[in-house]
Design a protein around this nucleic acid. Structure first.
Lengths: 204, 204
DNA sequence: TATTGCACAGACCAAGGGGTCTGTTATTTA
DNA sequence: TAAATAACAGACCCCTTGGTCTGTGCAATA
């Protein structure tokens, strides 16, 4: 029964290193050989476990990228109370992690969306699906925030979700260039200002 | 004297087609041969005018991309009066153009920033410089907006510029996936709401 | 008119790309 | 214990890559 374990271990090693290099250098700028070399594995190993480079990347999306986005951007928000507080905290944590990560190459989902947009429909589909779950999740918490008296009822939840995702993706792209600390600070300040405009005003 | 004209014409043809393909497929996923094939030109022609692929792309940045960003995002704003009106109109126009462009592959500056981030410092530098000019331009008009009584003096102009650029870059990335019309509408609605929170309130 | 040199054409090169195929070895299974 | 099979290793394939180099035609100059 240890064969299955070995299989899983090798596949997982390939996926983790693959994601690392794809994330750092981009998909088209990373060869299968690059991954194999840094793991001291052979072509035989790779094509025994995966049908193609594309198939390999799809498996990475499904097993690693989905999990990453869920754990950092979706689960911290799900089912919570005050949308403003929890989204604020979630974004702040994510930006904080990025800031102190020497190996930050941007928002993983955003980078790959950009790289595959209109260039590989199959992969784009998988990535877009993750984005959509994120969006639905934000819309849900905002709607709940209305019932709970946090969010102004006149606010368009979908619009807010779009605006939040857009700004987050953008600032993550900018942060790679450096000056992260300032960018993070500025971004969060304005995010809070924006949130204030959505808040349910006390009727005097 | 028609030799110099021919030289310019060929170089320009190469740059225009080069930008088109780099923009569509990405830099690393577009070969020099791809460009030459679609123009029925030879290697000789290319390497007579440009030292390398990288040198070629830098020339494209300096001659075409700079001009594009300037004409669509910088000049329409420069020296104008009401920041909110003019930025709103500028972004709306840009998104409108993108929406009705069948060949939209995203925000050109954002895409290349993502592709070269930390992967090619030389090229990144050229791209970042453009971004910085854009940012300075936004900050300037916001500051002027304070003196002119449009913008609340407590507002942090740099923060606002960061937030504006981030959200614009993000929404342009999302728009490639489709559903442009809705994304554009949602984005502009929230942008206006955000602007309202920056406006100088009449002291009652 | 002869000659120079610009603006290419296109063969060529080594390196690297994704992918195939035939071993080989250690572990299961019969 | 023998046979079967899973899990690789690595040579090999053909195509594409960025880049070089020699050749060539045509306009500019003398």
């Amino acid at each position: 029964m240890e064969k299955k374990l070995k299989r899983m271990a090798t596949m997982h090693k390939l996926q983790v290193k693959g994601l690392e290099l794809f994330y750092q250098n981009g998909y088209y700028n990373t060869s299968v050989d690059d991954i194999l070399k840094s793991l001291s594995l052979s072509k035989g190993a790779f094509y025994y476990h995966f049908q193609s480079k594309e198939d390999f990347f799809i498996s990475i999306i499904q097993s690693l990228i989905v999990r990453k986005v869920y754990s950092t951007l979706i689960e911290p928000i799900e089912g919570k109370e005050n949308p403003f507080l929890v989204i604020d905290k979630c974004f702040e944590n994510s930006l904080e992690t990025a800031e102190h990560n020497e190996m930050d190459y941007g928002f993983i989902l955003g980078n790959f969306l950009t790289e595959f947009n209109r260039r590989n429909e199959t992969i784009s589909k998988y990535l877009t699906d993750i984005y959509k779950v994120w969006e639905v999740n934000l819309v849900t918490i905002l709607q709940k925030g209305k019932s709970d008296g946090f969010v102004d009822r006149h606010v368009d939840s979908e619009g807010v979700a779009t605006y939040l995702i857009s700004s987050y993706m953008g600032v993550r792209t900018l942060m790679v260039q450096g000056n992260c600390k300032n960018l993070k600070y500025n971004y969060l300040q304005q995010l809070r200002r924006y949130f204030n405009s959505l808040r349910l005003k006390e009727t005097v």
